[in-house]
Nucleic acid binder design. Structure first.
Lengths: 188, 188
DNA sequence: GTCTATACATGGATAGAC
DNA sequence: GTCTATCCATGTATAGAC
């Protein structure tokens, strides 16, 4: 059991949540201070600058997503893999109107240091690569449809998912995310 | 000729540009003050609060886009309409790494007043409606492909375009936007 | 590690002179 | 309309005591 989180872990978790809600420029050390219950100077002890904090946040978030992808049973049919992925992608919407951290940081990217850009790029590539394999499998099986190369189809699919969580939150509905999934599923 | 812009117009134009680059929480009255060459108090004269400013910005931006859509020759084949739209959508990328204002504000939406949310929603709907008509035309002509209803296909296409400008800027490449367009074009 | 205290810049906003 | 002057809150960050 790991019920007791260290201060550092709590800070990082709240930072991720806040950024997924309001973006990098929409939260402060003070917000974290109030949420965790320590002074801002204590947070600076763990994360000297906000740049350090966001970089660690991206790393942790990426690791969590990678683990979730690896946890998907390879034996499943591709359409079920995509359904799981879509559900996972939209989960944080219901949790509190949050969108993918790396989608959000992509919007804020021009205000962030180069190291963060590289980390976010790596996240994009990891997801796109995973989706490309799922699409290739789905085409072979006949459970999914994808025009052109799986790689470019995967980039388009990933972009559509990122755009759709944005729209889903904007309109307070999840149907836009479901529209995307339906578009890649083979007709029954 | 309309070469001389009023202070108000200059402020609004720069506000739009800055928000497309850094987001709502990534620019200040001081930034605008330096760009336009007037004091921040003068900007407050035209836009009492930042909320007023962003609302006016969305309205002007929307009007400009609506005009551009109306300027598209209805007699064109649908694939050419989509090509124009995609080019238009990605134009600001080359101008200075800017993305669609309303895509950016959708990311910042949880920090913005309700009136802005409604204005951004209206922008999304306008674009999706226009794209739905283009898709319907394209399917009939055989120049575009769209699975399912044109309306839901248009929502997915619009989301894919929004997600792709984000990714294009992130990776410093426009190919991701082109991937999207190719996916909806009929095979030659 | 966490605190108090504080520095110092930034940011939104207003009052009142011109 | 635009300015000066100013207010006050916020935000990042650091020094040094405990």
């Amino acid at each position: 059991m790991n019920t007791k989180l260290t201060v550092r872990e709590q800070v990082l978790d709240h930072a991720i949540t806040l950024m997924m809600l309001r973006g990098y420029n929409g939260f402060s050390y003070r917000d974290l201070s109030e949420l965790v219950g320590v002074k801002t100077s204590s947070i600076h002890y763990y994360f000297p600058s906000k740049d350090d904090l966001v970089l660690e946040a991206v790393k942790q978030y990426s690791d969590e997503v990678v683990q979730a992808l690896q946890a998907v049973d390879p034996a499943l049919p591709a359409d079920q893999k995509l359904a799981m992925y879509t559900r996972f992608f939209g989960k944080t919407l219901g949790d509190g109107n949050q969108i993918c951290l790396c989608g959000m940081l992509a919007a804020d990217i021009e205000t962030l240091p180069e190291a963060v850009r590289e980390a976010v790029q790596a996240f994009f590539r990891t997801n796109e690569t995973w989706l490309a394999k799922v699409l290739a499998q789905g085409v072979k099986e006949g459970t999914l449809v994808a025009r052109g190369k799986p790689e470019s189809a995967a980039r388009t699919l990933f972009a559509a998912l990122q755009g759709s969580v944005l729209a889903s939150r904007l309109f307070h509905t999840k149907t836009r995310l479901e529209d995307v999934e339906a578009m890649w599923k083979a007709a029954p």
